[in-house]
Design a protein around this nucleic acid. Structure first.
Lengths: 181, 181
DNA sequence: CCATGACCATACGCAACCGTATGGAAGGAG
DNA sequence: CTCCTTCCATACGGTTGCGTATGGTCATGG
C-alpha cells in the first residue's frame, strides 16, 4: 500500500511553489496532484499554514549547509570558491530559481518567511565575507563586497526569472574579478 | 457628486499591489477600500484582468520615461548620471520598491506582466549602456557593465524588501566605481 | 483473531470572490 | 420638463478553497 508522508506533501508543495508562487500552495489542488483527497492532508498537517512552515524549514536547511558544503568540496582557494559560487548560481536549475524567488517574494508579506530567508541570507553572506577575508581583504571591505556580490546574485536570479538575460560565463567572471579587485 | 474613474481604480490597485502583491488585486476588497461596491468596478472595467492590464500599462509608462527624464535633468556628466541613478534607486520610496518587486514576481507566472517588465528593463538597460559608452567604454563592455549594474540594482530592491540591509551611500559609491573601472 | 492506530475518502458548512442582471439616482442635452 | 447617459447599489448564481466530522480500510502487535 502506497502511503504518503509529510515529506511527500512538502515535495509536492515545492513543485507547486515553483510553478505558481505561494498562492499556488492550496490544499485541494495539491491533493489532486498527489492523487489523494484532502483528508490525507489534514491527517498530516494541522492546517495550510503548517505546510507553509514545514516547507520554510526544509528550504532553510537545504539553502545553507548544502550549498556551502558543496562549494567547500569543489574548490580549494578562496578565489576559486567565489568563482564556483557565482557559476553555481548562474547555472542553477530553473526550478531552484523559481523556488528561491517565490520565497523571497513571499517574504515581502509574511514575517515567518522573511525571518527564514534572512537567516539563510545571513549565513551565505557571512560565508562569502569569510572567503573574501581569506584573500587578504579587510573585514569591512570584505563585508561590503560580499553584500555587493550577493546583490548581484539575487539580481541574476530574479531578473532571469522575469524575462531578463542569463548571465554569460564572461559576465560572471567579470563580476567576480571586480569583487576581488 | 464624487464619482470615480478608471484612474482611481488603478491608483487604488497600486496601493493594494504594494501591500499584498498581485493576489491582493481583488475586486471586492478594492471596492470596499474605495467606499463603493463592485458595481462601480464592472462599469469601468470588463473584468479583473482588464484592471491588471491597465495597471501594467500605467506602470510601464511611469517606469521608463519618468526616471530617465528625471536623471537627465538632475545631472550633466555620464558618471554623475550613473551615480544619480544608483542613489535614486537606493533611496526610492518603499511603496515603489514594493510595486516594482510585486510586478517582477508577477512576471514569473504571467506573460503580459513579463512582456511589460522586459520592455522597461530593456529601456533602462539601453539608457545605462549609453551612459557608459559616453565615458569612453567600448560598446560590448558597456553593455556588460550595464547588465551588471542592473543586477545590482534589482538585487538591492529585492533583497531590501525581503529583510536585507539597505545599501549605504558608501556601498553605492563603491559599486558605481567598480562599474566605471 | 481482534483491537488499535495510521492513513485516507466522503460529505458538509462556511467564507471569499467573480461576474451578471437589473434598477435607481443624478446631471446635462434637447 | 423629459429623455438619455453615466455611475453605482443591490441581489443573485456559481466556483474555489478551508477546515471539520465521520467512517472505512489495512497493517500490525498482542
Amino acid at each position: 500500500m502506497r502511503t504518503l508522508s509529510q515529506a511527500a506533501w512538502v515535495a509536492a508543495g515545492f513543485v507547486a511553489l515553483a510553478e505558481g508562487g505561494v498562492e499556488a500552495l492550496r490544499v485541494e489542488p495539491l491533493a489532486e496532484r498527489l492523487g489523494v483527497t484532502k483528508g490525507s492532508f489534514y491527517h498530516h498537517f494541522a492546517n495550510r499554514r503548517a505546510l507553509h512552515e514545514a516547507m520554510l524549514d526544509a528550504w532553510e536547511h537545504r539553502g545553507t549547509t548544502e550549498i556551502i558544503d558543496d562549494i567547500d568540496a569543489a574548490a580549494a582557494t578562496p578565489a576559486e570558491r567565489l568563482r564556483h559560487l557565482a557559476h553555481r548560481t548562474m547555472r542553477s536549475e530553473p526550478t531552484n530559481d523559481a523556488i528561491e524567488n517565490a520565497i523571497r517574494a513571499w517574504a515581502a508579506t509574511d514575517d515567518v518567511a522573511s525571518a527564514a530567508i534572512s537567516r539563510v541570507d545571513e549565513r551565505r553572506l557571512e560565508y562569502t565575507a569569510t572567503l573574501l577575508r581569506s584573500t587578504g581583504m579587510s573585514p569591512a571591505r570584505a563585508r561590503r563586497r560580499a553584500r555587493l556580490l550577493y546583490r548581484i546574485l539575487i539580481g541574476e536570479f530574479v531578473w532571469r526569472s522575469s524575462g531578463g538575460p542569463t548571465a554569460t560565463r564572461a559576465d560572471i567572471d567579470d563580476a567576480v574579478d571586480l569583487i576581488l579587485a
